[in-house]
Amino acid sequence: MKTELAADGLRLSIDHDLCSGTGYCQERLPALFAVEDRRAWLREDFDLATVGRDDLEDAAAACPWFAITVEEQ
């Protein structure tokens, strides 16, 4: 489990200082996000290229703690 993933020039990260474990990201993209010990994590084996940027942005926007960042690298 990670807090950062990158692929195709896109970087996705979760700030564990902010994450409060609501699990809304997991609800949107259960194949990518997993909540454990009250924090959201990124599944290691997930290939970011298999999901659209809009879906990533949508999962990030669902976080009431603004803990998820999607950015170009």
Binding site: H16, D17, L18, C19, S20, G21, P64, W65, F66, A67
Partner: peptide, 16 residues
């Protein structure tokens, strides 16, 4: 709402 909330999340996060 997002503008206001963003400024408070760090102060009220689990770690803080």
């Amino acid at each position: 709402h997002s503008r206001q909330r963003k400024l408070l999340t760090a102060a009220l996060s689990a770690s803080r």
